[in-house]
């Protein structure tokens, strides 16, 4: 037997083992978090946990509704800001901008993607919160600190710009030039072509980009935690403080050991995040993979 072939097969086996190990992380997460959250689920029904809004671990009340709503609020706000901006900007980059402008802006998006969450948080505290508290809220006759779901949404919006722009630009670039020509040659303006043909054709890809951005927004922890106010209440307006799920885990891990079921509740929160984000990611990746295959 040739030594080269032996080497080859050893490497094959080692890599397969590594792969197995890496993938077992998924099982580890599911079973680890699942078994940890079991005590809570045995104590209360899952429906109660998800729909109750009273959170006081000392009394054994673990209502997740404030946190779910906190996450939903910041995510929705960030989408409302980021989706239209990103669609318009990526259309501009692909259809109107010169190659020079495109080669200038797209690398900047990589920089934006590389900035760590904590720096977004610092920016949020220094810039977004004072503006929301000092300028925007007074416009509505409110006097608040600015630590609110609105600030969280703005910071999150900026954080999901890069992922949306890069995917949308990629999707738009795959649309054949001749399809645009077909519409233009009928006398449509460029904007009409974009609205009625290009965006329609790019819809699945754009949806995938948005879903991916949602899952990113769901899981974002530290930046949102820093600007959101972190009060366990169901937010009623833009300027109310909120308390998203990831912030709940991050803020309370230290004290959870001493209170019964508290650790179980936090692990349940992590499991909830994992399941939701895993699902959203899976959907958008499946869409994107299918689009890639078509080309």
């Amino acid at each position: 037997m040739n030594i080269r072939l032996i080497k080859d097969s050893i490497i094959q086996k080692v890599s397969a083992l590594l792969l197995l190990l890496a993938l077992s992380v998924v099982l580890l997460i599911v079973f680890g978090l699942g078994s940890k959250s079991l005590p809570l689920l045995q104590d209360q029904s899952i429906w109660d946990i998800l729909s109750q809004s009273v959170w006081s671990p000392l009394k054994g009340d673990f209502g997740f509704l404030p946190f779910i709503m906190g996450t939903v609020w910041v995510t929705l706000i960030s989408l409302c800001i980021a989706v239209p901006l990103c669609i318009l900007a990526s259309v501009y980059l692909v259809e109107y901008a010169s190659a020079r402008l495109r080669n200038f802006v797209l690398p900047l998006m990589n920089v934006l993607a590389a900035i760590p969450p904590v720096l977004y948080g610092v920016w949020g505290v220094l810039f977004v919160v004072p503006i929301v508290g000092g300028w925007v809220a007074p416009l509505f006759g409110l006097s608040v600190t600015g630590y609110s779901v609105f600030s969280g949404g703005i910071v999150l919006a900026v954080m999901i710009f890069p992922i949306m722009i890069s995917i949308m630009v990629e999707v738009l670039q795959t649309i054949p030039q001749d399809l645009k020509f077909a519409s233009l040659s009928l006398g449509a303006t460029k904007w009409e072509t974009i609205q009625k043909v290009i965006l329609k054709k790019a819809k699945p890809g754009i949806i995938a980009a948005i879903v991916l951005a949602i899952s990113r927004a769901f899981g974002e922890t530290i930046a949102v935690l820093m600007v959101c106010g972190n009060i366990p209440q169901v937010p009623k307006s833009l300027f109310d403080a909120g308390y998203p799920i990831p912030a709940l885990i991050a803020n309370n891990f230290g004290e959870m050991m001493s209170i019964p079921l508290y650790d179980s509740a936090l692990m349940f929160a992590a499991l909830l995040l994992f399941v939701i984000i895993f699902g959203f990611n899976l959907i958008s990746r499946l869409i994107l993979n299918r689009l890639e295959d078509k080309i």
């Binding site: 899952s215 899981g219 990611n281």
Partner: peptide
């Protein structure tokens, strides 16, 4: 790809 999108807080918790 999906694991890539799982937030670090989940890894941290587990």
């Amino acid at each position: 790809d999906v694991l890539f999108g799982i937030p670090s807080i989940v890894y941290g918790a587990i």
